[in-house]
């Protein structure tokens, strides 16, 4: 699909663990749970669920904090800008170790200018404008599919071994 305004940005740290495709294929998913992000209470619930998953996967306390913070940013984006959506937590297994993947979807208006949205300080809502770009820095792999009028899907993964 190459609609005008359809944009995708992917980023990966140097020396990536495995190929992760765009979240549907690539590495085996060992567990998958989807949470709704419709209310402010959901934001807290999602944070708890992501924290529990990071512990289960075996992340250290700093990585736990990184992933939960990224989840909080992405879930808030979906709630504030996307009018609500969902966050799926996937435990994945790469060739080098385990990982946690967050798939955050919303059916909102989409992001018209993705590059700008990823720039620090850019905001259209309540926050510091570090949400998307910041979350990208906290994760190892980060892909955004969006476009005006088609909602947004963010797929972000962090690995236990890098």
């Amino acid at each position: 699909m190459a609609l005008p305004g359809d944009s995708t940005v992917a980023s990966r740290r140097p020396k990536p663990a495995p190929r992760a495709g765009d979240g549907e294929a690539g590495v085996p998913v060992t567990r998958q749970v989807t949470h709704q992000v419709r209310t402010e209470e959901d934001l807290l619930a999602v944070r708890h669920a992501v924290r529990a998953a990071t512990v289960e996967v075996g992340f250290g306390i700093v990585d736990q904090t990184r992933v939960v913070t990224a989840a909080s940013e992405l879930a808030r984006n979906a709630y504030v800008h996307g009018g609500g959506g969902s966050l799926t937590i996937e435990q994945v297994r790469g060739p080098a170790g385990r990982g946690l993947r967050l798939v955050v979807k919303d059916d909102g208006p989409g992001i018209a200018d993705l590059d700008t949205a990823l720039t620090d300080g850019f905001t259209t809502g309540a926050g510091l404008g570090h949400g998307l770009g910041g979350a990208r820095r906290l994760m190892d792999e980060f892909t955004v599919h969006t476009g005006a009028g088609q909602g947004t899907v963010v797929v972000a993964t962090r690995w236990t071994v890098r």
Binding site: T65, V68, T69, S72, R76, G127, G129, H130, G131
Partner: peptide, 10 residues
């Protein structure tokens, strides 16, 4: 506080 996201920071 176990996490501070951009909202709490703000």
């Amino acid at each position: 506080l176990e996490i501070i996201d951009s909202f709490v920071a703000r």
